[in-house]
Design a binder for these strands. Sequence first.
DNA 1: GGAACGGGTTTGAACGTTCCAACAAATGCG
DNA 2: CGCATTTGTTGGAACGTTCAAACCCGTTCC
Lengths: 360, 360
Amino acid sequence: MAEGSRVTVPSTRATIVDVARAARVSRQTVSNVLNRPDKVAPPTLERVRAEIARLGFTPHVTAQQLRRRKAAAFGFEVNPSGHAKMGHILDEFLVQLTVAAPGHGSHVMTFAPDPEDVVEGYRQTLATGLVDGFVLADTRPGDPRPQWLLEHDVPFVAFGRVWDLPDLHQWVDVDGGIGVRHAVAHLVEAGYDRIGFLGWPAGSPVGDDRRNGWLAGLADAGRTDPDEAEAEESVQDLDQATAAAERLLARLGPGSAVVCASDMLALGAVRAARNAGLALGPDVGVVGFDDTDVAEALSVTSIRQPIAEAAQTAWRMLLSPRSTEPVLLVPELTVRSSSTRTPSSAATRPHDTLITEEQQ
Amino acid sequence: MAEGSRVTVPSTRATIVDVARAARVSRQTVSNVLNRPDKVAPPTLERVRAEIARLGFTPHVTAQQLRRRKAAAFGFEVNPSGHAKMGHILDEFLVQLTVAAPGHGSHVMTFAPDPEDVVEGYRQTLATGLVDGFVLADTRPGDPRPQWLLEHDVPFVAFGRVWDLPDLHQWVDVDGGIGVRHAVAHLVEAGYDRIGFLGWPAGSPVGDDRRNGWLAGLADAGRTDPDEAEAEESVQDLDQATAAAERLLARLGPGSAVVCASDMLALGAVRAARNAGLALGPDVGVVGFDDTDVAEALSVTSIRQPIAEAAQTAWRMLLSPRSTEPVLLVPELTVRSSSTRTPSSAATRPHDTLITEEQQ
DNA sequence: GGAACGGGTTTGAACGTTCCAACAAATGCG
DNA sequence: CGCATTTGTTGGAACGTTCAAACCCGTTCC
């Protein structure tokens, strides 16, 4: 073993053997220091740790992956066309997943979908041994991925409900319905008379969820017969959304408010209010969804999904036994001037702990 | 696919030795089939390939990484707070980087910044052996990362100019200036009289770049004395942006147009036009930057950065020798009704190849 | 006082692949 | 025809780590 004679040139990274030699112990003891410190005698422990620090040794994760036969990494499929789909919620989710990863001793590997077959990208990625499993996002009814992963015994967790498999509990989602419900309560408390809903046509699970939250919110406030609602096909067609919001506001009358299923729809509502010569906040209340930069720029109150918490929950589920329950997180309301009736009440902070006000 | 049909118990994945045994050759020959097919006799090649297909063998990348002493993966630092900074350009860049990765035989690993020290996250990530280098984004003057990576001989490429190291050519960026310049030309051609600029205060490299593009565009059109410009501090404060746009439009007079340094500023310009009772397109032209969903929703013409191409270029630079030149990509203009003076000319497609019209 | 125990440490082997040197057979050359 | 060269293939070793079992030695137990 004359390999490490040249002490001066640290051209190559320090390995566990280098540390072992320096601390006058065997490789395995160094390994134990790192992985089972309780099994090592205190003096030895200290000596080895000193050498680790001195040599700046960091374990070679690739070698660990090979020997341990697990990657401690999970794959996340990015969607190249998803630009307009779920806003940028999924981008933020990926970021938060990455941020939370080290805390769970893991990593995130992104990969692109196979254009041919949905599951093929997953099969390939898994076969490389670079990941132990996957974090799914953008789950939808008819999604073949959960079924396939279950069949092949691949660990995974979904961000979004897994609609087709009621027995599968490995998912986190944000309870949009309760978010809207709280928004309605907030608008009632703020003093708006009637509270309408601007959403998407019935049929989409997410959209229906939010609409039901609106109905529940009205029921909470003792409104037995629902206020008006309008539905828009496209999130992008702002002109139609604006027109729908105009009709909605006309029917609701002055002093009313509109809860929207997205910030883009809220932008339509804001334009409708302007067109009708109504002041945003004092004359008409507007609440959006997702708390995007648009809502921030327009100073529109918006329902914010707790993405960081969702990412944490995802890791917890991934790394814990299958017995977990699904988790529905409660979104928070970022209150801005669009839901403030009077200038004086702008300073009044709601006491509901679920509602936070943005600090400027 | 009878890939792993129950010939034997396929509980464990097929390895290169399994293939070798089945094809009655040595491991090394199988390895050669995969890596240097030219060195293998045709009959053998065919036989081994058949077995590879039959057994559904995929090389274990982790083992390759260890033996080859390279990961064929690059790290990308995600920014948890960057939500509002560069729009969602960086999110899209990460996606496109991931999409292009397999074409270059590589992968992308995301990692979070170390809160303490900027380069520490890079040091750590590199030490694990999980990546060979990095793709930097969001470079700014004074950025310590390029210097450190150079000193430690770590391969990297930057998306965004590397300001402090003029001799470093390992970067791709989008030429915002020429994008604005083309936008000005487009507006001139569309028949707008005076063309203003709504941007950020002087001092930011990106903002100055775009403003200079505006000036260059005016010069192209033979305007020796520049039209009016306004600068806004914050991209988010839409009310101030709107007010600035109102002043700008008032000074420019009817039939003029405004080029904006961001889509959010363009939103301010759109509001200003509405407030002034001017029709967007016929009465006043507006062009935004980044072609976000806001621009799409408002039907605002916007300058789109060629992110997919930037990602491709980044990979090319990473995997080629250091001798490459830096690359400045030319953005495209997505033309919408906000820069169309007359209804008839809406159908007219500009002949400039750099300008594309969105197909609906 | 020998056997059983147990904490602490070491050694051999393995994870799945590629590098490297060696080798056998076929080919070229003088 | 003998020898050098090429072509195709092979086996040993190594990448850096952890698993599994063995080992050493001081205690405890009957």
